[in-house]
Design a protein around this nucleic acid. Sequence first.
DNA 1: CAAGAATTATGAACCC
DNA 2: GGGTTCATAATTCTTG
Lengths: 89, 89, 89, 89
Amino acid sequence: MALDAVGHTEDKTSGVAGDRLRALVDRIERLEEERKALAGDIKDIYGEAKSAGFDVKVLRQLIRIRKQEPAEVEEQETLLDVYRHALGM
Amino acid sequence: MALDAVGHTEDKTSGVAGDRLRALVDRIERLEEERKALAGDIKDIYGEAKSAGFDVKVLRQLIRIRKQEPAEVEEQETLLDVYRHALGM
Amino acid sequence: MALDAVGHTEDKTSGVAGDRLRALVDRIERLEEERKALAGDIKDIYGEAKSAGFDVKVLRQLIRIRKQEPAEVEEQETLLDVYRHALGM
Amino acid sequence: MALDAVGHTEDKTSGVAGDRLRALVDRIERLEEERKALAGDIKDIYGEAKSAGFDVKVLRQLIRIRKQEPAEVEEQETLLDVYRHALGM
DNA sequence: CAAGAATTATGAACCC
DNA sequence: GGGTTCATAATTCTTG
């Protein structure tokens, strides 16, 4: 618990730690708003892609693959093949 | 890599690890089928409710609330403290 | 509105529609409990698989693929290749 | 299939649709970078808060509550109440 | 069928 | 550093 920060003996109605807390909360909420806006922008682009005839699910997969290390991609694809063959697929 | 599991020296066309994999996959798929069946049953009940004149959306909301209400009990005391401390009380 | 069902002139403290509602809620909650239990069982199996040296993420992918129609699998894989090539990957 | 988008009659090695795809991917990846940067900033603030003696977990909880509290206001006066009363809740 | 909520899966962070 | 919980991302289901 944050007793050090807000729990005690400052002046009664929003001590210095309360102010500090408020400031932190404000900054976080501000940044989260920006984050949310960006998320909206990204969603819009996927919508655009869809309208242009791209398959959104595959597009997401593509983005995901590009984020990984090539070696890692290769490994997972190989492993999947191993499992598929083990099941005769 | 999961070479320990399927990658090597068993007999060629579905080694002991292949069998193990198959068994796991079978069990998972069996359980998922049951899960799907239950989902269907639940859906049927909502259909029944609708026929009886209940508002399905609100009914779902009710079920949701009842599910999360117990959890919120213990969340209370902590939150109360948070608010009290933030106000220097 | 579901006034026909619970809104009015039955006896005050849980009319016949109230009883009906209660029965529906009970049945739904019962089935959802079973569903949750199954989800737990499935999770356990994935844990087992992990202990046996299988890559859980790839295993999930395998299950997902088996759930799709083969034609659909083929199509998505093809499409991904098309996109990758289009980007020179 | 999204043949309209990249599958056919453009010039061979990255047709006009390939360019379109590339542009979409670039924009998405650009925005995701910004998103990631913001996530880092937020994380830093939580670190700051921790150094100042605040309980990070509770702080996150506070932020979460502040986010969802406005939404819950309008949830009030619906049929939900009717049903809850029907169950004696 | 498109938009949005809700569940489920993946990824990150924290504690031990 | 390994496992467990918590946060975010993605898919699925519902509803209009």
